[in-house]
């Protein structure tokens, strides 16, 4: 009953967002596409955050997903969007699975620092690769959709719809995962993992799974973002990119799956607004919003919903 209600709500939201595209100006559709692509990375961070882990290196998977798309297009000329997105996700997932053996042993700030170091090593490798344009990066071939090659506004609509589709499936699966036993163990692990281990459950196994989930989501997000931006560069692996994702995660809160998407959209809109209105003070604007969120909405934007709900519940 419960899950059906939120499922219906999510579906309604999805359909509304998809139908809105042709009526919105193109720049807004592009902004929303990038926001919803980045939201996948944020969703991955939410998965980790539920066990109390934060990665300052999630840009590693974002960058791998993006470069997987760009390099495939560059080397083979293959441009099918859906296949490329899956490739980005799988590629990042494989990397996450292998370094997960290492990362799953780490907790707290050490988890954050090791992921940061790994993403910075990828950054260094890409900067050193002059044949791929070093820090200038290179452009991504225009994607196609099962042989259909749209242009201009059509292209941005199709990318937007693809992003929404991937988002919807990711949100659904992550929602299911949160309700599974492994997902439900997140809070107990966060509180005290030894007790969980005494129940005969492998905590590092669960964390390893979460690292992979977050990695796949990061790769999918990077792949979608690369196609939407049309360009990749090593900056996608730099620590400030990771910092931006963590920023949105805190803004959104870990309470709801949908919060990642609304939070990411709100963040992109806010940044765009701040750069537009206060070109010399946009960092201050972003910083202030983050501070105010932490101080007054400690559980993120998501908690707005629960607060409203509680208030309604109290008032008859």
């Amino acid at each position: 009953m419960q899950s059906r209600a939120s499922l219906l709500g999510g579906l309604a939201l999805l359909v509304a967002a998809a139908l809105a595209a042709p009526f919105l100006p193109d720049w807004m559709v592009s902004l929303a596409t990038i926001a919803f692509a980045n939201a996948l990375v944020v969703l991955g961070l939410v998965v980790l955050w539920r066990v109390g882990l934060v990665s300052f290196g999630q840009a590693l998977y974002y960058c791998i997903g993006a470069y997987a798309v760009a390099l495939t297009g560059r080397w083979t000329g293959f441009t099918d969007a859906l296949a490329l997105v899956l490739l980005g996700g799988v590629g990042a997932g494989i990397v996450a699975a292998s370094i997960g053996f290492l990362l799953a042993r780490y907790r707290e700030i050490f988890f954050a620092m090791l992921s940061l170091a790994l993403s910075m090593i990828l950054y260094g490798v890409l900067v050193k690769t002059e044949s791929l344009g070093s820090t200038d990066g290179f452009s991504v071939a225009t994607p196609t959709f099962f042989g259909y090659a749209p242009h201009g506004a059509q292209l941005s609509h199709w990318l937007y719809w693809l992003t929404l589709g991937v988002d919807a499936i990711a949100a659904l699966l992550v929602g299911l995962y949160f309700r599974s036993v492994a997902g439900a163990l997140a809070a107990p692990i966060r509180d005290n993992e030894i007790r969980v281990e005494f129940l005969g459950i492998s905590v590092s196994g669960i964390i390893h799974t979460k690292v992979i989930i977050a990695g796949v989501l990061g790769g999918l997000g990077g792949a979608l973002a690369a196609m939407s931006i049309g360009h990749v560069d090593p900056n996608m692996a730099y620590w400030t990119t990771s910092g931006g994702f963590v920023f949105v995660t805190v803004l959104a809160g870990s309470g709801y799956v949908a919060a990642a998407f609304v939070g990411s959209l709100a963040f992109e809109a806010l940044r765009s607004f701040a750069v537009d209105v206060m070109p010399q003070l946009w960092q201050m604007t972003l910083g202030s919003v983050l501070l105010l969120t932490i101080l007054f909405l400690p559980e993120g934007l998501g908690s707005l919903v629960s607060r409203l709900r509680q208030r309604r519940a109290v008032k008859p």
Binding site: W49, A112, L286, G287, L291, L295
Partner: peptide, 26 residues
Amino acid sequence: LVYGKDEVVIVLVTYATFLILEDVIG
């Protein structure tokens, strides 16, 4: 105001402050 919160949240408080101070320098 934020002592006792999650370590990572405090990191972000300092990150936000850092962003603000960057523009204060300017």
